[in-house]
Amino acid sequence: MNDELFDSPVFVKGGSFTIDEIASLRDAIDFLEEWPVELQNLPYETILRA
């Protein structure tokens, strides 16, 4: 997989007190793989497939 960096990173709230930086497709996949099972609903599935 090509792990080129995005033009601008995306910052997302990763927990109660953390902010995660997503700077590449690999970062985005890693973030989604750590998503809590109880929150894996239709929007999650749509993002994962995209």
Rank of each mutant, 00 (worst) to 15 (best):
M1F: 13
M1P: 10
M1K: 13
N2F: 12
E4T: 13
L5W: 05
L5S: 12
F6W: 04
D7C: 05
D7E: 14
D7H: 08
S8Y: 07
S8L: 12
S8T: 12
S8W: 02
S8G: 01
S8A: 13
P9L: 11
V10D: 03
V10W: 03
V10M: 09
V10S: 04
V10A: 10
F11Q: 12
F11L: 12
V12K: 05
K13F: 11
K13N: 14
K13R: 15
K13S: 14
G14H: 09
G15A: 11
G15E: 08
S16A: 11
F17L: 09
F17P: 00
F17I: 02
I19T: 14
I19D: 06
I19C: 10
I19L: 13
D20S: 09
D20E: 15
E21H: 01
E21A: 08
E21K: 13
I22Q: 13
I22P: 07
A23K: 05
S24W: 02
L25M: 11
R26A: 14
R26I: 07
D27W: 03
D27V: 04
A28E: 01
A28W: 01
A28I: 01
A28F: 05
I29C: 10
I29T: 10
I29P: 00
I29F: 08
F31T: 01
F31Q: 00
F31D: 00
L32S: 08
L32T: 09
L32W: 06
L32V: 08
L32P: 02
L32E: 07
E33H: 03
E33Q: 12
E34Y: 00
E34V: 00
E34W: 00
W35A: 06
W35I: 01
W35T: 07
P36R: 07
P36M: 10
V37G: 02
E38V: 11
L39S: 15
Q40C: 12
Q40H: 03
N41I: 06
N41F: 05
N41P: 00
N41T: 14
L42Q: 06
L42E: 10
P43T: 08
P43H: 10
Y44F: 14
Y44E: 01
Y44Q: 02
Y44D: 01
Y44L: 04
Y44G: 01
E45N: 01
E45W: 03
T46L: 15
T46C: 13
I47G: 00
L48V: 11
L48H: 01
L48Q: 02
L48E: 06
R49V: 02
R49K: 13
R49N: 06
R49I: 01
A50R: 07
A50P: 00
A50G: 15
A50I: 05
A50N: 14
